[in-house]
Design a protein around this nucleic acid. Structure first.
Length: 706
RNA sequence: GCACCCUUAGCUCAGUUGGUUAGAGCGUACGAUUCACAUUCGUAAGGUCGCAAGUUCAACUCUUGCAGGGUGCACCA
């Protein structure tokens, strides 16, 4: 008997050794897999942000994907799990800016090149830690194919897509209203803003012969019209006319227009229109061909158009304008008003809508194709109800602003004319003169929204369009990722995939929820309730952590992860260890072939039924049920009942019963290790390596029991 | 406002297509234990499956309404 089993199972002693053994074997690479009997099975790993440490969320996704991959590998598939890391443009720049702030520095004192270089160093250092963290979690991914979102070939693919979209008229540069963050000095997509309920005042101001209600009197210097509902009898006489409104800095000429968007019952039924600083007003402005007058600058300060208010920040300007309006007798009434405002999802500052020229992607047609793919079952989303959410979002999508005014990202391969601001796509970086006016072209200083590039991840990583991997592994099988990036990422991948390759990028989307703490609170550094997978792994073993993350947690739902549960699975690991020990101890020298007695045939039949049941769960992505069933069987059937009832047989005098039972137990043990391997890879492989009778060298590539 | 999800034992959650006495982990109580495992074993307490109605031979499961909690999207300035 192997002396290894005389001590309790020690995960830390074995895990790194076992991972080393797997990695050395080369079997993470599908090209090296022995006994491939099925087609390819591919998962592209959602690349973790290369800007910080591994956290419980990473542990969850690694566990789930590794389970799928190990299972399919054992079923004989040519299994590829392609890892990567994400430069995560805006996210990372925000993290780095915070770091700079702590050091008393500012991004705005650095040139874009300097900032880019600093963040690249920072990211390269973190990338290593992230990769090692995933190794520790047991990720059986093919490191030889690892990609980074800023790899030159990835950038080339992204550029080619941009060019093609531009040629197809799907990408355009437009002066459109954008979400501007005054802290981060960049525009953001609609997804990168949150709405927040605020208590403000609603001011009723005299505007010439009319009265308008507004929360933003300070934008009055950018007003170009007053809009009323076309059916509103009160204002019918004014429609189409110009009115003169008195302001603290002189008279303002405003057109009165009729638009359905105006609610008769809200305020006075008359709405002041500021196309340059309000998304709705901008839309109304487009419909009525109104000019737009910018009065707020990039820092959130009023500009020279606001006369004496120039240089004041929005809040200060509002106070001053209200005071002056009151003095002039133009402020008629003030009401308390609760409404929602858009804020930056990173810093929480109120978004200042601004009209700036940006690159946009036309979404309507792309979105329709994506919806069709889901409705036609080309793509299945788990949990299923997310398909409705997915389609609902795509049905109501607006054009996507992909320009970011940040340094950390893929530069947009375009040039702008100094003279006329005409924009041209220039992938090869060769154009020097404006094709329109002949003026000098300069590089577009902006970078892509990070999701514009990561949205192309599945085919970009596989070397589209000519790569061998692309031919062999695309479309991929499963996209396993967090439910909260369904729109940010999954929807974009589907659209890009269909657009560029004509195929869905993956057939199944498996979404997981958030990992919360034992009290069901969100984990955060400030609360101090963050679970560090590395610390947990050291204390209880990676396998215990994996079991705790997967067992009993249905797809798409948030989970409460408590240390007690992890501890429970550490006990489970030891239980399996001791089961092995018991069986080995008593099986020594008992290798002779024997006939099974009926009682043992029955035990095996029961076990095979369980195996079939578990296999069905695995096929249907019900990992939380599969692991629970194995757990129950191992502990409460095999250990508590079968082993206990075996003792009289094993220690008794009836030789045929004794040998039959020992053989049965050995058969069950081997298959059990296989069933458990996707969930607890380290423990099961450690045991496998110590067993005398295993035919297959490595459990990693052993055959899943039929 | 619209959409989606959740509500099951003290706590955290499972429960696949409706089908016997509704399950697990942790916790609690009592007991056992030289012979794989104190990281053990046994026994027990604990649930009118949010509320109400409906469909059905049969509902935790399906339908409708209501209440509470959560999430997403869009907004009336």
């Amino acid at each position: 008997m192997n002396s290894k089993f005389t001590k309790p199972y020690n995960p830390t002693e074995n895990e790194s050794v076992i991972y080393e053994l797997w990695e050395q074997s080369g079997y993470f690479n599908p090209d090296n897999l022995p006994n491939v009997t099925e087609g390819p099975f591919t998962i592209i790993m959602p690349p973790p942000n290369a800007n910080g440490q591994i956290h419980a969320g990473h542990a969850l996704f690694v566990t789930l994907e590794d389970i799928m991959i190990r299972y399919k590998r054992m079923r004989g598939f040519k299994t590829l799990w392609l890892p990567g890391t994400d430069h995560a443009g805006f996210e990372t720049q925000v993290v780095y800016e915070k770091k700079l702030e702590k050091e008393g520095r500012s991004r705005f004192n650095l040139s874009r090149e300097e900032l880019y270089a600093e963040i690249m160093d920072f990211v390269q250092a973190n990338k290593k830690a992230t990769e090692n963290g995933m190794r520790q979690l047991g990720a059986s991914c093919d490191w030889s194919r690892e990609k980074f979102t800023l790899d030159p070939d990835i950038i080339q693919t992204v550029y080619a897509t941009f060019k093609q979209m531009s040629d197809d008229g799907l990408v355009y540069r437009g002066e459109r209203i954008t979400n501007w963050c005054t802290k981060h000095q960049t525009s953001l997509s609609d997804l990168e803003t949150l709405s927040e309920t605020r208590k403000d005042k609603l001011y009723y101001m005299q505007y010439g012969p009319l009265v308008v209600a507004t929360v933003r009197p300070e934008t009055m210097f950018g007003d170009v019209a007053v809009a009323v509902n076309p059916d509103d009898e009160r204002y019918r006489q004014y429609i189409g006319q110009d009115i003169l409104a008195q302001t603290p800095i002189g008279e303002l000429k405003l057109k009165v227009i009729a638009d359905e968007a105006v609610e008769k019952d809200f305020g006075t039924g008359a709405l002041k229109i500021t196309p340059a600083h309000d998304a709705n007003d901008f839309e109304i402005g487009l419909r009525h061909n109104l000019p737009s007058v910018e009065v707020i600058d990039r820092y959130g300060k009023l500009n020279e158009k606001a006369g004496k208010y120039a240089g004041l920040k929005i809040e200060a300007a509002r106070e001053a304008v209200v005071r002056d309006l009151t003095e002039l007798g133009l402020l008629l009434k003030t009401e308390d008003y609760e409404h929602d405002v858009s804020v930056c999802y990173k810093c929480g500052r109120v978004i200042e809508p601004r009209i700036i020229p940006q690159w946009f992607v036309k979404m309507k047609n792309l979105a329709e194709q994506a919806v069709k793919a889901v409705k036609n079952k080309k793509i299945q989303i788990i949990p299923n109800h997310q398909e409705k959410v997915f389609c609902h979002w795509l049905d109501n999508i607006r054009d996507w602003n992909i320009s970011r005014q940040i340094a950390w990202g893929i530069p947009i391969p375009a040039k702008l004319c100094e003279k006329c601001d005409y924009a041209v796509v220039d992938i090869e970086n060769q154009k020097t003169d404006c094709p329109k006016c002949g003026g000098r072209l300069i590089k577009d200083p902006d970078t892509f929204d990070t999701w514009f590039s990561s949205g192309q991840w599945p085919y970009a990583t596989l070397g589209y369009p000519t790569g061998e991997d692309y031919r062999n592994f695309y479309p991929t099988d499963v996209m396993e990722t967090a439910g909260d990036i369904l729109f940010f990422w999954v929807a974009r991948m589907v659209m890009f995939g269909l657009y560029r390759t004509g195929q869905v990028p993956f057939q199944t989307v498996y979404l997981h929820g958030l990992v919360r703490d034992a009290k069901n609170q969100k984990m955060s550094k400030s609360k101090g309730n963050v679970i560090d997978p590395a610390v947990i792994a050291r204390k209880y073993g990676t396998d215990a952590l994996r079991m705790a993350l997967v067992t009993g947690n249905a797809a798409g739902t948030d989970m409460a992860l408590s240390e007690d549960r992890i501890k429970g699975y550490k006990h489970f690991a030891n239980k399996i260890w001791n089961i092995t020990r018991f069986i080995l101890e008593n099986s020594q020298g008992q290798n002779s072939p024997v006939d099974l007695v009926p009682a043992d045939e029955k035990l095996l039949a029961e076990f095979r039924a369980l195996t079939a049941d578990i296999t069905t769960d695995m096929e249907n992505f019900r990992f939380h049920l599969a692991s629970e069933k194995i757990y129950q069987y191992t502990w409460h059937t095999l250990a508590d009942v079968i082993l206990e009832e075996s003792k009289p047989l094993i220690f008794g005098n009836n030789e045929s019963n004794r040998l039959s039972r020992l053989l049965t137990l050995n058969i069950i043990l081997l298959d059990l290790l296989k069933l458990l391997h996707p969930f607890m890879p380290f423990l099961t492989e450690t045991i496998w390596q110590s067993l005398p009778q295993t035919k297959e060298k490595m459990l990693l590539t052993a055959r899943w029991p039929e």
